[in-house]
Computed example of a mutant assay.
Amino acid sequence: MKNIYQSTAFLDKRACEKYQLSPEILMENAACALETLIGTLTHKGSVITILCGSGDNGGDGYALARRLSGDYAVRIMQLKEPKSPLCQQAYERTMQCDVKFIKKILPCDVMVDCVVGSGLRGNLESSLSDVLKNAQKAARINIACDIPSGLNESNDGFVFKAHHTICMGAISLVCLSDKAKDFVGTLHIGKLGLSESHYQVSSNIKMLESCDLSLPQRIQENTHKGNFGHLAVFAGEKCGAAIMSAQSALSFGAGLVSIISDENITIPSEIIQEHTLPQKSTALALGMGLGVEKSAEILKDLCESSLSCVLDADVFHTPIIKTFLDES
């Protein structure tokens, strides 16, 4: 599982205080992570356009331009003058490399969005949106630094559409929202001079990965379906959700799967239908399309059950869920 954070600012501060790193070092490593990603996506000599804002996100862009200069055809479009101390410092260093500055968007191989980071509240300024709209159409590959500009919970306007987003140090929760799916592309984590285990701390928000899935190992030949567990899935108002869950359980290794329903419903032939919980059940799944009232009723009956449960959807809208979890 990966740790996910509402904000990673406190992790940067912790890295500086605990490991005696400076914000300047973190910025240099952010630029290094961007450079490495670009190296995997295109060849030396490619035209790279970097859009820079006035804050530390823009500073990452200037530092990247300095690192790429000489190996790539680098162009910088300055959307705002450097304002933060780190951005100003990175800008001054980059000016020594004779990087080309442009005033309008031109076609290129890679477009890098270093305009606005996670600190944005509300919508992007219209002047920035207009440039970014043209920019995302001008390149073969779009990369966002940290998060795509404009992506936040309160923005109902324009968001830069990236093919790749490189989160610095750890993944921000906003990059995993439903809205973000159309804008972040492939997510990467850029190291800031520390391994993930040193940079990150445990978070109460986690993201499951494929490596977290532990399928049953069927090493015995003389077996039958009853040797691999019996899952009971409760169906309610919208039985389709329960049927899909039951089919998924069969696909990843459950031996027997029953749907528990008060009514007779049409289900695939490989799934068993029951009106009450089978005595040989070894695990439960409930909540998917179950309905709030039905969920509360079933949870009340299961409070003393010792069976493993997968809980979803409607069960979390019932007050009894707290009692159920406390007693489980």
Results as ranks from 00 to 15, higher is better:
N3C: 06
T8V: 11
A9L: 07
K13R: 11
R14P: 09
A15I: 03
A33Y: 11
E35R: 15
I38D: 14
G45I: 00
S46K: 08
G55W: 13
D71M: 08
P82L: 00
K83Q: 10
P85S: 11
K104C: 10
V110H: 12
M111Q: 02
V116D: 01
S118G: 10
G122D: 01
L124G: 09
S126K: 11
N134Y: 05
A135P: 13
A135T: 08
K137F: 05
I143W: 04
D146Y: 13
A162G: 12
A162I: 01
I166M: 02
M168H: 12
L173E: 11
L176Q: 10
F183M: 10
K191N: 08
G193M: 00
S195F: 11
Y199C: 00
V201R: 06
K206W: 00
Q217C: 04
R218L: 01
I219W: 15
E221C: 09
N222S: 05
H224T: 03
G226T: 02
G229M: 01
L231R: 15
V233W: 15
F234S: 11
A241S: 08
A242T: 04
A246K: 04
Q247Y: 14
S248F: 15
S251A: 09
G253I: 00
L256E: 01
V257A: 13
I259H: 14
D262S: 13
S269W: 07
E270M: 04
T276M: 01
A285K: 05
V292S: 08
S295P: 11
C303Y: 08
E304S: 12
F324A: 06
L325C: 13
